[in-house]
Computed example of a mutant assay.
Amino acid sequence: MRWLAYMISRFLLKLILGVVVKTHVLHRERSRLPGGWLFVSNHISHFDPPFLTVAAFRKLDWMATRELYHPWPVALWMKAVDTFPVDRERADRAATRETLERVKRGRVVGIFPEGGIRDGANSVLEGASLKPGLAGLAQLSGAPVVPCALIGSDQLYTHRNWIPFRKSEAWIAFGEPLYVEGEGKEARAAFEERIAAALRALYAELKERFALTEKDLPQPPARRKGRL
Rank of each mutant, 00 (worst) to 15 (best):
A91S: 13
R93D: 12
R93Y: 08
R93H: 14
A94Q: 14
A94C: 08
A95T: 12
T96C: 12
T96Q: 15
R97M: 06
E98G: 03
E98M: 08
T99I: 08
L100C: 03
R102I: 01
R102W: 01
K104S: 13
K104M: 05
G106R: 01
G110F: 03
I111R: 01
F112R: 04
F112E: 06
E114I: 02
G115I: 03
G115P: 01
G116N: 02
G116A: 05
I117K: 00
I117R: 01
I117W: 01
D119R: 00
D119I: 03
N122T: 14
S123V: 00
L125C: 00
L125Y: 02
L125D: 05
E126T: 12
G127Q: 13
G127I: 06
L130C: 05
K131A: 14
K131T: 15
P132C: 09
G133C: 07
A135W: 00
L137S: 04
S141T: 02
G142M: 02
A143Q: 05
V145E: 03
V145S: 06
V146I: 08
G152S: 10
D154P: 07
Q155W: 11
Q155R: 15
L156R: 05
Y157Q: 05
H159K: 13
N161L: 10
W162M: 04
W162Y: 09
I163A: 14
I163L: 14
E169H: 12
E169G: 11
A170T: 05
I172E: 10
A173K: 03
F174K: 06
F174T: 10
E176I: 09
P177M: 02
P177F: 00
E183I: 11
E183D: 15
G184I: 10
G184M: 03
E186I: 09
A187L: 00
R188S: 13
F191K: 05
E193L: 15
E193P: 10
A198N: 03
R200T: 02
R200D: 13
R200M: 09
R200N: 04
A201Y: 07
Y203L: 06
A204I: 10
A204N: 13
E205C: 08
L206M: 08
L206V: 07
R209S: 04
F210L: 14
F210P: 06
L212I: 12
E214Y: 12
K215N: 15
